[in-house]
Amino acid sequence: MTPADRSTTRRRLLTAAAALSGTALLGGTATAHAAGTHGAAWPTAFPLPYGFQPEGIAIGTRPFAYFGSLANGDVHRASLATGRGSVVVRGLGAGHPTVGLKIDPQGRLFLAGGASGEIRVADARTGETEQVYATGGAFVNDVILTPGAAWFTDSFAARLHKLVLGRDGAPRAVETVPLGGDWVQGDDFTANGIERTPDGSALLVVNAFADGGRLMRVDPGTGAARTVDLGTARLPNGDGLLLLGRTLYAVQQAQNAVDVFRLNAAGTRGTAVARITDPRFRIPTTAAAWGDRLYLPNARFDVEPTPGTEYDVVAVDRV
């Protein structure tokens, strides 16, 4: 499939399924749960409901993974120890997908609403959708939590959506931060995954369009973007990002791979150190970590989704 075909296919499937600079403000280095905290018998793959259409994954402070549905916005929670799970948040129906998602220590789920242009906040314990914000965005794709805000990418516009959080972590209001500097906006999917720099001073955003696919470092106060020096590496199919210490995992969904980089503290430079592949990958989109494993949902963007389409999650070893 050509890059144009792949982009068109992904857009069709998704649509159909559908300042703060400074370590003190963005928070410090992201950390993983201690390696070896799962048993050897924990499954390395488990199914999701038929027809679920997963895209995003989030793991909080307990060994449970949360997955969003492109079909109707449902959130499914699964035990990493057994693979068994159930829907804990009912979506708002067709046209209101859940793409990227994150969970905070209070059990709040921050949900990117894709082509609906929505940001939603739900309670994972009660299943209640507590807030729905209409951003006017064309495609709200992915999200990262910082101490003062939840930041969302917009794939079809040169901007980020900033959901301001109170001191208690409760959501307040949405602001828009235009992207400038080195940012180049394409005609199709451009911004995708989002993370923080290792020192917490800025944001990292995948730009799948610029120069064959670049990682951008964004000043959250001004929106100014600068290209991260990754040498000759490119992210043409870059999707979800996961930062563990100074190690950045970038899921390259259509390549069925996860590219691994070692970043400097400021996130201005990185060195490619590994590529993770697995025969079980069927277009993984995002990754989350528990112990010494990465967990990735297979989105299967290469097939037409039906109510009977099988979806699953696979676990691989961290680098």
Results as ranks from 00 to 15, higher is better:
P3N: 11
L13C: 02
A16S: 08
L20A: 00
L25C: 04
T29A: 13
A32F: 05
H33S: 13
G36E: 14
G39R: 02
G39T: 14
W42Q: 03
P43M: 10
F46H: 05
L48I: 02
L48G: 00
Y50L: 02
G51R: 04
F52G: 11
P63A: 04
L70Y: 02
N72L: 05
H76W: 15
A81Y: 15
R84D: 13
R84W: 10
G85H: 10
S86T: 15
S86V: 15
V88K: 13
G93I: 07
A94F: 04
H96A: 15
V99F: 12
P105Y: 04
P105H: 07
Q106K: 14
L111T: 09
L111P: 02
G113P: 05
G117I: 03
E118G: 05
I119Y: 08
I119L: 05
R120W: 11
A122S: 03
A124T: 06
E128P: 00
A138M: 02
V140G: 15
N141T: 08
P147E: 08
G148L: 12
A150N: 02
F152V: 01
T153V: 07
F156E: 00
A158W: 07
R159P: 01
L160R: 00
R167V: 13
G169M: 15
R172G: 06
T176Q: 08
T176N: 07
L179E: 00
G186H: 06
D188T: 10
F189C: 00
F189M: 09
G193R: 01
I194P: 00
E195F: 03
P198A: 11
D199K: 05
S201H: 06
N207G: 13
A208W: 06
M216D: 14
V218E: 10
V218A: 12
D219K: 11
G221A: 10
A225F: 12
R226F: 03
A233N: 06
A233E: 14
R234L: 00
L235T: 10
G238W: 11
G238F: 08
G240D: 14
L244D: 12
R246S: 10
Y249I: 05
A250W: 10
Q253P: 09
A254I: 07
A254S: 14
A254N: 11
R262L: 14
L263E: 15
G267A: 07
T268H: 06
G270M: 13
T271I: 09
R275M: 10
I276L: 09
P279W: 05
I283R: 06
T285Y: 07
T286C: 03
D292V: 01
L294P: 13
Y295D: 11
Y311Q: 14
V319T: 06
V319F: 09
